[in-house]
């Protein structure tokens, strides 16, 4: 059985706002074909203030689909529809204290139902902007459709390419056989042949010029900031961000926010940032989440005392 958080169980066993809202003026109906789950979200929006006064759900789906629906109706109640539209699937998952990677699509379904309901309220047609396929990489929750699209869009040829562009396969590596199969399929469609020994495609990066001369403390911190800024677009594409907090000796403390925070990927991302910083600054640097800073600084302080 899935390892559901207590929060998921709580929302499943005692769902909030179950049933259709009477006199609803915003209705969203979406389903996930890959799972067979489907959800109807009904909202009562105050036309004066655009505040969602009541929200209700009806879900045909598994435990986490029901829990995601329930928690969504709680989150958006009292929000204006513009505020509600800013709710991401990650917010839904966070509110549930996380979902297993195979179940993240349940939170996606919740967000889409919300978008569909708002579109319905505004009298416009809602179009789904993404497709979903079989889950390939369980470490980073990357599905087959995403991998296929990236192979097409970026002319990827090897498993390493796919990992560079999507992160799929960058964890336990158990899915490399599946990624190879997708590469074989897509490359065959393009009239090419998959070659396991091919060299990897170049990754386009905003390059920060390497440091050649010794730096003052201020220059050094500025340079570190510059490197972080160059890496931010990639992080933000994943719904995350990074912020420089402090530099002590050769230790760089950063805050990982958004989707990066608490995600399994954070450790890998930090390793990537560290690598890049060392390349540019030409010195050994250690990147550490700022959450660990207090502990470390205190120990250092105690040593001097």
């Amino acid at each position: 059985m899935w390892d559901y958080s207590d929060k998921v169980k709580e929302h499943f066993f005692t769902p909030k706002n179950a049933g259709a809202v009477v006199g609803a003026n915003a209705i969203g109906e979406v389903g996930s074909i890959s799972c067979g789950d489907a959800l109807r979200l009904t909202l009562k929006v105050n036309p004066e203030t655009e505040i969602i006064e009541e929200s209700g759900f009806q879900t045909f789906g598994c435990g986490s689909a029901i829990a995601s629906s329930s928690v969504l109706t709680e989150i958006i109640k009292g929000m204006t529809i513009d505020e509600a539209l800013k709710v991401t699937n990650q917010d839904i998952a966070n509110e549930l204290d996380g979902l297993p990677p195979e179940k993240m699509h349940c939170s996606v379904m919740g967000r889409e139902a919300l978008q569909a309901a708002v579109a319905n309220y505004r009298g416009v047609e809602w179009k789904d902007d993404h497709e979903e396929g079989a889950l390939i990489c369980k470490c980073f929750a990357i599905d087959a459709v995403m991998i296929e699209e990236m192979i097409w869009a970026n002319k990827l040829r090897t498993v390493e390419d796919v990992t560079n562009f999507t992160k799929a396969g960058g964890g336990c590596a158990a899915c490399h056989e599946d990624i190879e199969a997708i590469l074989e399929k897509v490359l065959a469609e393009k009239g090419e042949k998959f070659d396991a020994t091919a060299s990897t495609a170049p990754v386009e990066k905003v390059e920060v010029e390497k440091v050649k001369t010794p730096l003052t403390s201020v220059q050094r911190i500025k340079k570190i900031e510059e490197v972080l800024t160059s890496l931010r677009p990639q992080l933000m594409a994943d719904g995350g961000d990074v912020e420089l907090v402090e530099v002590v000796g050769n230790t760089v403390y950063v805050n990982m926010t958004g989707a990066c925070n608490g995600c399994q990927m954070a450790a890998m991302t930090i390793a990537g940032i560290q690598q890049r910083l060392m390349e540019v600054l030409g010195e050994f640097l250690r990147v550490v989440p700022a959450s660990e800073m207090k502990k470390l600084v205190n120990i250092e302080g105690a040593g001097h005392a």
Binding site: M1, F13, C35, D37, G61, C62, G63, S64, K103
Partner: peptide, 22 residues
């Protein structure tokens, strides 16, 4: 949906399985 049924059965102390996707 089957998984939802199984979770409620499990709460009642009953173990079964399902053909559901989830």
């Amino acid at each position: 949906e089957g998984e939802a049924i199984l979770m409620l059965l499990n709460k009642a102390g009953i173990a079964a399985s399902s053909g559901s996707a989830c």
